[in-house]
Amino acid sequence: MEMFTDWRTWERARAELQARPLAAGDLEVLERAVAAARRWHGSQQRPSGAPYLEHLLETLEVLVRGAQVTDVEILAAAVLHDVVEDTEATVSAVEAEFGPVVAELVDWVTAPPATGRGRQAKRAAKAAYLRRLREAPPEAITVKLADRISNVQTLDRMPPDFQRRYYAETVTYILPLAQSLPDARGRWFTGWYESWRRHFAHLG
């Protein structure tokens, strides 16, 4: 199972991106996206205690190194994919800085808040959100697939009950999204997730 944990800082990511076939100006767009993500997420951390930016850069790394994505709007949306869900940022704010396409992709991958209280309400809202992603455009699905790879590649570091639940959720909802992409990108994601599924088969 290929891991994507090298781009822990923007400086490392930027150095590798400079060697990629990006269009003129794309690196500047991504630099602005990283700066905006830093501003919006602030001191937010991952469950491990690592800066939240590491997750965003891992998602970017999956797209660039793994799926060979060069579309700057998809890449910028990957960096910004959690700002509306987890910070005070709005879709309108994202659109004002990065345009309607990036804002739409971020909107698609933003899970709405649960309407009820308690664990069951939250899980129902999450399932509804994941089912809705079947209707998302391929570009938004691509962002979500990369986001989930960042989260599940180190699943064994999480508590056992979370591991089993997240494994089942990924197999049920995320693998079919990968299989829904008909191009080489979809084949890459499908192959990665199948490798991941074998690696964590003991959770099934």
Results as ranks from 00 to 15, higher is better:
Glu2Ser: 11
Met3Thr: 15
Asp6Ile: 03
Asp6Met: 06
Thr9Gly: 05
Thr9Ile: 04
Thr9Ser: 15
Trp10Asn: 01
Glu11Met: 03
Ala13Ile: 00
Arg14Ser: 04
Ala15Trp: 10
Ala15Arg: 13
Glu16Met: 09
Leu17Tyr: 01
Ala19Asn: 09
Leu22His: 00
Leu22Lys: 00
Ala23Asp: 08
Ala24Asp: 03
Gly25Leu: 00
Asp26Glu: 13
Asp26Ser: 15
Leu30Pro: 01
Arg32Ile: 00
Val34Lys: 08
Ala35Lys: 08
Ala36Phe: 09
Ala36Ile: 00
Ala36Asn: 00
Ala36Val: 00
Gly42Glu: 09
Gly42Thr: 06
Ser43His: 11
Ser43Gly: 10
Gln45Asp: 07
Ala50Trp: 04
Leu53Arg: 02
Leu53Glu: 14
Glu54Tyr: 06
His55Gln: 03
Glu58Met: 04
Glu58Ile: 00
Glu61Asp: 08
Leu63Ile: 07
Leu63Pro: 02
Arg65Pro: 01
Gly66Leu: 12
Gln68Pro: 01
Thr70Leu: 02
Val72Leu: 04
Ile74Ala: 08
Leu75Trp: 02
Ala76His: 00
Ala76Pro: 00
Leu80Thr: 04
Val84Asn: 13
Asp86Gln: 14
Glu88Phe: 07
Ala89Leu: 01
Ala89Trp: 01
Val91Ala: 11
Val94Asp: 09
Glu97Ala: 13
Glu97Phe: 01
Gly99Gln: 05
Glu104His: 09
Leu105Pro: 01
Val106Ser: 12
Asp107Ser: 14
Asp107Gly: 11
Thr110Trp: 10
Ala111Phe: 08
Pro112Tyr: 08
Pro113Trp: 14
Pro113Ile: 10
Ala114Cys: 08
Ala114Gly: 06
Thr115Val: 05
Arg119Phe: 07
Gln120Leu: 15
Lys126Leu: 13
Ala127Gly: 09
Ala127Pro: 07
Ala128Cys: 09
Tyr129Phe: 15
Arg132Glu: 11
Arg132Leu: 09
Leu133Trp: 04
Arg134Tyr: 07
Glu135Asp: 15
Glu135Pro: 03
Ala136Ser: 09
Ala136Thr: 05
Pro137Glu: 06
Pro137Lys: 06
Pro137Ser: 07
Pro138Leu: 09
Ala140Pro: 01
Ile141His: 08
Thr142Lys: 04
Val143Tyr: 00
Leu145Ile: 03
Ala146Leu: 02
Asp147Asn: 11
Arg148Phe: 05
Arg148Gly: 02
Ile149Leu: 11
Ile149Phe: 10
Gln153Gly: 02
Gln153Glu: 15
Thr154Ala: 13
Leu155Gln: 12
Arg157His: 10
Pro160Ala: 14
Asp161Tyr: 03
Phe162Lys: 11
Arg164Pro: 03
Thr172Lys: 09
Thr172Val: 10
Tyr173Leu: 07
Tyr173Pro: 04
Ile174Asn: 14
Ile174Thr: 15
Leu175Asn: 11
Pro176Cys: 14
Leu181Ala: 11
Pro182Phe: 07
Ala184Leu: 05
Arg185Glu: 14
Arg185Ile: 09
Trp188Ala: 11
Thr190Val: 12
Thr190Met: 12
Thr190Tyr: 08
Trp192Gln: 11
Trp192Met: 02
Tyr193Trp: 09
Tyr193Ser: 06
Glu194Leu: 14
Arg197Phe: 11
Arg198Lys: 07
His199Arg: 15
Phe200Ile: 05
Phe200Cys: 07
Ala201Leu: 12
Ala201Gln: 14
Ala201Tyr: 08
His202Thr: 08
His202Val: 12
Gly204Ser: 10
